[in-house]
Design a protein around this nucleic acid. Structure first.
Length: 482
RNA sequence: GGCGUCGUGGCCGAGUGGCUUAGGCAAGGGCCUGCAAAGCCCUGUACCCGGGUUCGAUUCCCGGCGGCGCCUCCA
């Protein structure tokens, strides 16, 4: 695998390019994280899953990966026309809670949910409010280089000083005016100019504000990412990810600031953007009050990891149709896959094969799997290989486990620790955890042995009504939650 | 209105100028089972419409229709 060259789609160049780390052997990845004024929904989690797969693939290729994603706890305005309130501040005003209570709660929800989806922990999770000094400093640098101007409302970036501004997202700057949809209540020179530092109006006091060379206020949204990314990963970034919606405004502005302040042209080598989840016409955005979260899945009895499997079944640059029935279907697929993996694992005592000791057929499949992934993270294709491995009759148990155990470094399903049918949580611990269920199960088995099938079936129905499905295995009967 | 993207078998969803029956879920048949469930085996021959390029297009080009996204906060 280490020998396979990795190719990734770069939004800036609009093509798949060969990945080359800036510093040999190392790679830094930055992802625009959540604005913690409300819950993160399943669509948001797609942009957590993309970098998770990316870092796993890069890591498996032998690179030392440093993954950073931030928490936006200030500066993200309710409207991006550079007017309106800070989102966190607005939420605090609405609920009467403190800013800390709000940002803490939603930061925790985000962290918990990404964990439930099998995402590895970031190496660092910087917060915007903890990098105020750096942001002020960067604005000063931009100011010194003549890229800013100040008006009553704050300090703005002057896009006319950055000729490449429209290039990144393929914008036609005139469109900004043509649409006529932006109310320019501030005296911006160009509609695309954006706030670097917002000033608190005289006589007003905000929950979150800091002193600056321009007066009390708070930083603009875009500046935080440029600052945190460079402080954590150095000025020249290998990969920066985010949702497609960020291309036009947020990332365009990040590029403008960073390239001007650092005097560096591609500030980021590869920009990766995940497409949206398609909720069948109904847009799943916070402003519409349509909040589907990981909890929404759990409430329906769906394993959060089913969503991970669901995510892997579609390419990240493709809009993905969402439906609970679809995620449930993925859950079925995951359950079967896990069963195959654990069966093979248990057959060989859980030991992963030493590299090279797998058979010809196995090595062929292993190569297919990694080839799909290094081709711009073609996870659907990789999953097809996974399915083949799970059932291929030519593979020995050892080979099967060798492959699935290896693949799980990317899949993140936790095969090594997963409970197998007929053992673990379902078997040995059942008596302790679910004494009632264990008793019924034993009673049914006794009835079966006594050929009293009427009683046996009645008990089976009883268990089913309680949400337990009986699974008869060669090792004897056991149950699982249905 | 502008820009972009997608339109594949019941559903989701890869892929390719003429050998992939991709894969998953669902469905049907079989094996197993006391009967089931679970599991295993087998089956289904698809590429929005109309032109064009080509020996040949689902795959390339043009047009149309349709979905979605961005252009406003949004992953």
């Amino acid at each position: 695998m280490t020998s396979l060259p990795i190719h990734l789609y770069d939004t800036r160049r609009r093509s798949v390019v060969a990945f080359e780390p800036i510093h040999p052997g190392k790679v830094g990845i930055y992802t625009c994280g959540p604005t913690v004024y409300g819950p993160q929904h399943l669509g948001n989690m797609r942009s957590q899953l993309l970098p998770d797969v990316l870092r796993r693939v890069l890591g498996a290729s032998g690179l030392d990966v440093r993954y950073v994603t931030n928490i936006t706890d200030v500066g993200h305005l309710v409207s991006d026309a550079d007017d309106g309130d800070d989102k966190v501040e607005a939420a605090a005003a609405r609920t009467g809670e403190s800013v800390e209570q709000i940002t803490r709660r939603w930061t925790d929800q985000w962290a918990t949910d990404r964990r439930r989806l099998g995402c590895l922990e970031p190496d660092s999770v910087p917060k915007a409010t903890e990098h105020i000094a750096g942001q002020i400093e960067m604005v000063q640098v931009l100011e010194a280089k003549g890229h800013t101007y100040q008006i009553g409302d704050g300090v703005y970036f002057d896009v006319s000083t950055f000729p490449r501004y429209a290039e990144f997202a393929g914008l036609t700057l005139d469109d900004h005016e043509a649409t006529g949809r932006i109310d320019n209540i501030v005296d911006k020179r160009h509609p695309a100019d954006f706030a670097l530092w917002k000033l608190t109006p005289p006589g007003v006091s905000r929950l979150q504000e800091w002193d600056s060379p321009w007066g009390r206020g708070f930083p603009g949204w875009h500046i935080e990412c440029s600052v945190m990314a460079s402080e954590e990963l150095g000025r020249h970034i290998d990969v920066h990810t985010g949702g497609v919606d960020h291309v036009r405004v947020h990332h365009t502005n990040e590029v403008a600031q960073s390239e001007c302040a650092f005097e560096l042209h591609p500030w980021v080598n590869i920009w990766m953007h995940n497409e949206f989840l398609d909720l069948g016409g109904e847009k799943m955005s916070k402003s519409r009050g349509h909040i589907l979260t990981v909890d929404s899945l759990v409430e329906r009895g769906i394993d959060p990891l089913a969503f991970r499997y669901f995510f892997l079944q579609t390419h990240y640059r493709q809009q993905q149709a969402f439906g609970f029935d679809l995620v449930e279907a993925s859950g079925t697929g995951l359950r079967r896959l896990t069963q195959h993996a654990t069966n093979a694992r248990d057959e060989v005592g859980g030991d992963l094969l030493a590299p090279g000791s797998a058979g010809q057929r196995a090595e062929e499949l292993r190569k297919q799997f990694w080839s799909a992934l290094v081709d711009d993270l073609n996870t659907p294709k990789a999953m097809a290989v996974v399915s083949t491995v799970a059932r291929d009759g030519e593979l020995s148990h050892a080979d099967r486990w060798s492959l699935l155990g290896d693949f799980d470094r990317i899949l993140g399903f936790g095969f090594a620790d997963a409970a197998s049918v007929g053992s673990g949580e379902l078997g040995a611990d059942l008596g302790a955890k679910e004494p009632e269920v264990a008793k019924l199960l034993a009673a049914r088995q006794a009835a079966r042995l006594a050929k009293d099938f009427a009683t046996a079936d009645r008990i089976r129905d009883e268990l089913a009504a309680k949400g337990w499905e009986i699974v008869d295995t060669p090792q004897g009967p056991t149950v699982r939650r249905s």
